[in-house]
């Protein structure tokens, strides 16, 4: 799957499918500080991300 990351915006490729929780853990991202977006809506923690999905991991922590 293609994973879009932010700050700055960039893309990485992950082989195979994953649950949202597993993907965040693999990338060492805190669940409380991120949301996963697919086709304009959110995918919950146990949601399955397919190998051919394009998803965005959106950090939610702001500094100001």
């Amino acid at each position: 799957m293609i994973v879009v990351l932010r700050h700055p915006r960039r893309e990485i490729r992950i082989e195979g499918s994953r649950r949202v929780h597993a993907l965040l853990a693999e990338l060492e991202l805190t669940r409380e500080a991120h949301l996963v977006i697919r086709n304009g809506t959110l995918v919950p923690g146990d949601g399955l991300l397919e190998a051919d999905d394009t998803i965005e991991i959106r950090p939610v922590v702001s500094g100001g």
């Binding site: 932010r6 700050h7 700055p8 959110l42 959106r58």
Partner: peptide, 29 residues
């Protein structure tokens, strides 16, 4: 803030995602 971000995404509200460049690394973060 995970909830306020989710509110915006689910409501289709376009907001500034990139941070103020002055915020990087501050204590608050």
């Amino acid at each position: 803030e995970r909830e306020t971000a989710a509110w915006c995404i689910l409501r289709g509200i376009d907001y500034v995602i990139e941070e103020c460049p002055m915020a990087a690394g501050n204590r608050h973060l």
